[in-house]
Amino acid sequence: MEAVLYIDYLLPFLFFIVAFVYSSVGMGGGSSYTAIMVIAGMSTLVIPMVSLSLNLFVTTIGSYNYLRNKHGKLRIILPFLFSAIPFAYVGGALHLPKQVFLWILLASLILVAIRIYFWKDTGFRWQLNHWGKIAISLIAGSIMGLVAGIVGIGGGVYLVPLIIMLNIGTQKEAAAAGVVFVWVVSLSGLVSRLHYNSIDLSEYIPLIVAVVVGGFLGSYMGSFKFNPKTMEKILGLVILVAIALLIKKIVF
């Protein structure tokens, strides 16, 4: 009875909160979905596939809300996607030992927390020429794509501030680029994984419904109402809790 309640009610509730908070700042939530499923004891072979699938659901809605408000700009996102797509496919083809998977996930979450709490938008902008910006975009895209394919983290949390610091887009344009980026790399990583494994998403319908509703509400409020900095602080708290629980899972 407790297991049923956990799967049917507690996990969907947690996933709804994650989808709402992440999508409000142009992200899919893959980092926290993955951490929650690890903590819940799910298989590390299944987790990335579920996480990438949920990313797709959330960012499909988020992409619609941001793009219909004309925040999306192809010139911003294209260089990142050019390198991210093949690397996400490669990452999805890798089958790492469980402990390696967990440590990569933990490192990714810690970097997310550092980005939120210490990498602030202080007004600093890199003074680079056009080709310098393209080079950084390609390098960053390849790294984020690889990690997305391996553990199911879309990379939007890193991409959004990077766009701001490269001075190639506004906050809203960066959020729109982030949600589109997560959608594309999640699709690439998922396609790769489906070549080697199969997944019955009908088993995860409560989670899908939760992230669809949370993603719709969060992206709507993010594109129309919420202050991105306020939502980012809430996101930081979510990440810190996930880090603490994941460390407990790995160590104990």
Rank of each mutant, 00 (worst) to 15 (best):
I168W: 09
L105R: 07
G92F: 08
V191C: 06
L5M: 12
P97Y: 12
S24Y: 10
F252N: 01
H71I: 00
Q99G: 02
P97K: 09
P86N: 09
Y158E: 13
V213C: 10
V185G: 02
I164C: 03
Y6P: 00
I47F: 04
T122Y: 07
R125C: 11
A35I: 11
V21I: 15
P206D: 05
A19Q: 09
G30I: 14
V160I: 13
I47R: 05
N167Q: 05
P12S: 14
T60I: 10
I61W: 10
L105D: 11
G189W: 00
G62D: 12
I143Y: 05
S219F: 09
N227G: 02
R75Q: 15
A244Q: 04
Q171T: 12
L201D: 08
S31L: 15
A19P: 06
F224N: 13
S51R: 02
E203I: 12
G154T: 13
I85C: 01
L162F: 06
I85K: 00
L162E: 04
T59S: 10
I134E: 14
G141E: 04
I110W: 06
L10R: 01
K73N: 06
W119F: 15
A244N: 07
V211E: 14
M165K: 13
W131G: 02
I85N: 07
P86R: 12
Y22F: 15
F124I: 15
R193N: 03
F80E: 01
V211A: 10
H195L: 15
S24Q: 07
V212K: 12
T170N: 08
A93G: 07
Y33R: 07
V157H: 11
V251K: 03
I36G: 11
L201H: 00
V241C: 13
V100F: 04
L81N: 01
N129I: 11
M27R: 10
G30M: 12
W126T: 02
Y22N: 13
N55F: 00
A93C: 08
K133P: 02
P48I: 07
T59K: 07
F20D: 07
S223I: 05
L56W: 08
H95I: 11
V209P: 00
L78I: 13
F252S: 12
L111D: 09
S202M: 12
G156L: 11
S53D: 06
S198W: 12
I234P: 06
K70C: 08
M49T: 06
G92L: 01
A148H: 02
F224E: 11
V50N: 09
L106I: 08
F252H: 03
L5G: 08
V212C: 13
